[in-house]
Structures are given as structure tokens and as C-alpha cells.
Amino acid sequence: MSSTVTKALGLLEYFSEEEPEFGLSELARRSGVDKAAVHRMMNAMAESGLVEQQVDTRMYRLGAGVLRLARVRETAFPIGSIVHPILDGLSQETGETAHASLVSGRSLANIGTSESKKGNRVSLVAGEVLPFHSTASGLATMAFGDPKLMTRVLSGPLLARTAHTVTDPDELRARVQSVQKIGFAESDHTNEEDVHGIAAPLFDRMGQACGAVSVSTPSHRMTEAQRNLTIAAVMTAAQTITAGMGGQPSRAYGELAARVMEDLGLQ
């Protein structure tokens, strides 16, 4: 893919539920791309319906073309109908917020969330891009995904999201290797203050991680009993979603997951 196309599609990643519209200057500032170049790329994507520009405010937002493509994707390869009921059950079982994410290009995108019913809860935005290096979902995906993914993440900027974020490549590699040994990932205060995440990988048909399912809990509410419950529930949900998507874990991971469940007294 040419660098121009890559940069153009990369502009779409800035749009979210929290920030559904952007002006030209702000997109240029966020992306670090020349304003004139951003203008050309946005105009080209507007012609394809991927974005549209408000006549009065001149603000850009995602266009109907994105919705059409999303419907085609969901019809041909249903994800939402598989994931959302499982996330609802996972949230109900753990009492906390459950969410699933998939690798989308060079990003990890949240594709579904079921929020806790508790007043004090972790909230995620649909379509939110999750950092690989600071989230449990990202660590789980890197640990069992394409090795090129970890290489790319480690070679890129590792921004500190909190005072506890691991930004040293060697230390992060060691964390990923630990995840490979235990079959699931944890993050505590590393992406958001007072948020403890536990995630298990989702696998594609080739047996490589293509995303993760996770439960996010306020750290002050995480006890040993809650942790064990969450690990078991997340790993079970990950297996169910993987099967529903037509994926399959490697034999080695399947054996590892079985040992984890046995240690938790569930097999």
C-alpha cells in the first residue's frame, strides 16, 4: 500500500464517538501531515463517500460509505451478532465492563462493549482505538499474534498513558513473554488510573491472535476472588467468540488454556 493511501486511511482513525467531527487544521495537527495534503486526501475520500464535509461548519465526519462497508462486512462475516450477547453475559457474570477488540490495520479497535451496571464503572467508547503497549487487550494480542505485530509496536513510540505505563521496549517484551506463559494478560493502572484489565486472545483461522476480549474493573475493587472469577470468565468468553468467528487457537494455546482453567478448579 502506498504511503499516501496509508496516510489517508490513517486519518479515519481519529474519528470516534467522543470526537465525531474534525476541522481541517485539527486533523493536520493530530496527524502531523501537511494541511494541504490532508485537504487533498479528505477530498478524495469524500468522493468515495468515506467522509463528508458539513456545508456550514466545514467540519469533516465519517460518510455513508463507511456504513455501507460495515453492513457488507457484518453480513458476510458477522461479528456483532456473535460478540455482543457474549459480552453481555461476561459483564453480568463478572459485574464489570466487558469489551472486545480486533486488529484493524495498524490499530486495535474496540468493536463492542457491555458496561457494568454499577455506578462506579469503567467506560469505553465504541470504535475507540486501544494502545497495544498499555492495555491487557493489546498485550494478549501481541503475545499470540503475528510476531511482526510486536516488532512494529516495540519499534514505534510507546507513549506513557499514566505514571505506570511501561515504555521501555525490553521491559515490554518481557511482559509479553510472561503473557505467553500464562495464556492471559493483565494491566493495572497502565492505560488509565484505577483501571485493572484482564484479557484473553481471540484467534483467526490460522491460529494467530486477531484481537482480544477483556474485562475492565476499577482497581480498588479487584480482589483475589474477583480476579480468579474474571480470568475464568474471560478465557471462556474468548473461546466462544473465537469459535463463533470460525477461528481456532493453536494446539499449544489450547493446552495452556486448559491448564489455566484446571488451576482455577474449573476442569
Rank of each mutant, 00 (worst) to 15 (best):
residue 29 R to Y: 12
residue 12 L to Q: 09
residue 267 Q to Y: 13
residue 26 E to Y: 05
residue 141 T to Q: 14
residue 115 E to D: 08
residue 95 G to C: 09
residue 188 D to F: 00
residue 188 D to Y: 01
residue 132 F to Q: 04
residue 216 S to G: 01
residue 133 H to Q: 04
residue 44 A to L: 13
residue 185 A to D: 00
residue 215 V to G: 07
residue 68 R to D: 12
residue 92 Q to E: 10
residue 3 S to N: 15
residue 52 E to V: 05
residue 11 L to T: 03
residue 132 F to N: 08
residue 46 A to Q: 08
residue 38 V to C: 02
residue 7 K to S: 09
residue 74 E to G: 10
residue 25 S to P: 05
residue 182 I to E: 07
residue 48 S to A: 15
residue 84 H to C: 10
residue 80 G to L: 12
residue 66 V to H: 09
residue 19 E to H: 09
residue 224 E to P: 13
residue 164 H to Q: 09
residue 35 K to C: 03
residue 255 E to M: 07
residue 85 P to W: 10
residue 141 T to M: 06
residue 82 I to E: 10
residue 5 V to R: 02
residue 108 L to G: 06
residue 202 L to V: 12
residue 53 Q to T: 15
residue 157 P to R: 05
residue 55 V to S: 11
residue 30 R to F: 14
residue 146 D to S: 00
residue 236 T to W: 05
residue 117 K to D: 15
residue 126 A to F: 07
residue 252 A to Q: 06
residue 201 P to H: 05
residue 172 L to H: 13
residue 32 G to T: 08
residue 200 A to H: 01
residue 261 M to E: 11
residue 251 R to H: 11
residue 56 D to H: 10
residue 198 I to T: 13
residue 128 E to F: 04
residue 113 T to A: 05
residue 247 G to E: 00
residue 222 M to Y: 11
residue 17 E to A: 00
residue 105 G to P: 13
residue 54 Q to A: 14
residue 123 S to M: 15
residue 217 T to R: 05
residue 156 G to P: 14
residue 137 S to D: 03
residue 112 G to K: 06
residue 135 T to E: 08
residue 81 S to W: 08
residue 34 D to F: 15
residue 226 Q to R: 12
